[in-house]
Simulated scan of single mutants.
Amino acid sequence: MQFKGAFTALVTPFSNGQLDEEAYRKLIEWQIQSGINGVVPCGTTGESATMSHDEHKRVIRICVDQVKGRVPVLAGAGSNNTAEAVELTRFAKEAGADGALLITPYYNKPTQEGLYQHFKRIAEEVSMPFILYNVPGRTSVNLLPPTVARLNKDIPDVVGIKEATGDLNQVSQVLEFCGPDFQVLSGDDFTVLPLLSVGGCGVISVVSNILPDKMSALCSAWFAADLPKAREMHYLLASFSRMMFIETNPIPVKTALSLMGRINLEMRLPLTPMSPANSETLRGFLADKKLI
């Protein structure tokens, strides 16, 4: 499997409103040196919604250049505008990304047929491995298992899905309908181990921005059939997962990385800094865990 293990949904560091390329390259390098299995630029955690197309493309290009083929790069390339998704996916391929992460169209609330036709159109225009991204909490639409199976059957480039429903029954149905070679990645840091247990192959993680070694260790332990170690990592990471979502992602994880000295604390409106109370809670938590 090409997309297996722990993939980090990378934050995008900013400085004075601009991409902080130096901090971004350093973050990627630290991730790789810490044993991460892959990286995802321009996802939700990377604030893709508030980047211009030029910025989006620059972030992908920098990521591919910094990685230099050492781990897979799964580039966020989705949109609620099908033509725009085609353009971003085409660029991801030209930039040298190993695959494209394609979110279901948000806000439009397409039918299951609309979802099918959206991904079909992208595949007609660009050929590369596609990981679908199902996150109903952000998009208000749920890509249902029969539709995933139809896409997998009809479109060879649809090789997997990032499942962020938190619904293990739905994940089980996806694997039942698509077979064990379909690459199902968790989109919820809380459910990595349960998802692996039903046949998933990894995670696209927020928490691994700050703990790449621990998240990759969880996946490695599972694949080595070391269930006690995998369970240990699961419970070690549980409190971090809760802390990274005490406010809207990526606000807490960017705050944590800034407290760790890895990026400036800057995000784009409509995201705002953490409340003072939550910020102090996070600082105390990280200090207690000896990360700062």
Rank of each mutant, 00 (worst) to 15 (best):
F7G: 05
L195A: 14
P212C: 07
L237T: 13
P146F: 04
K254E: 12
Y133D: 15
Q2A: 06
V135E: 14
S275M: 06
T50Q: 09
P146W: 05
S172M: 04
G160I: 03
N81R: 01
T191H: 06
P129E: 05
K57C: 11
E163V: 00
K229Q: 14
G199P: 13
F130D: 10
V40I: 11
T139L: 05
L196D: 15
S140V: 08
L282Y: 04
M260R: 07
M274P: 12
K93E: 14
P273H: 06
K254D: 11
G284S: 04
Q31G: 02
T272S: 13
D54V: 06
V206C: 13
P110K: 02
T147M: 03
L269I: 13
H56D: 03
F182P: 04
T50S: 15
L101D: 13
H118E: 09
T8F: 02
V40M: 13
I251K: 04
G187S: 10
S220G: 15
S79I: 03
N81D: 15
P129L: 03
V59E: 11
P41G: 07
K162P: 08
T8D: 09
F245N: 14
G96V: 01
V71Q: 06
D181F: 00
N264K: 14
D167L: 02
E113R: 07
E29V: 00
E163P: 02
I292A: 02
L168S: 11
A6W: 00
G137S: 14
R268P: 15
M1Y: 02
N16A: 11
V64D: 12
A23W: 00
Q173W: 00
Y24T: 05
M233T: 01
I103T: 15
F245E: 14
K68H: 12
P129Q: 03
P110E: 13
Y24W: 05
A75R: 05
A6Y: 00
Y107M: 13
I204K: 08
I155F: 03
A95E: 12
G78P: 13
P110S: 08
F182H: 05
Q170P: 08
L19R: 04
I246R: 07
G46M: 03
S216N: 12
G5K: 01
L10T: 08
K68G: 13
G76Q: 12
K57V: 03
F14A: 07
I62C: 03
A75S: 10
K26H: 10
M233E: 11
A9D: 01
F7P: 10
M260E: 09
A49W: 00
K229E: 14
E87D: 15
C219S: 14
Q183H: 04
P180L: 00
T248N: 08
Q31S: 02
K109H: 09
A277W: 00
K4S: 12
I32R: 02
A256F: 09
K109V: 09
G76M: 09
I246F: 07
Y24V: 01
A277L: 01
E22M: 00
S127T: 15
P136T: 13
T165W: 03
A49T: 09
L101V: 08
D188L: 05
D189A: 09
E87I: 05
V86H: 04
P273W: 03
K289C: 03
R121P: 01
Q173E: 14
S239C: 02
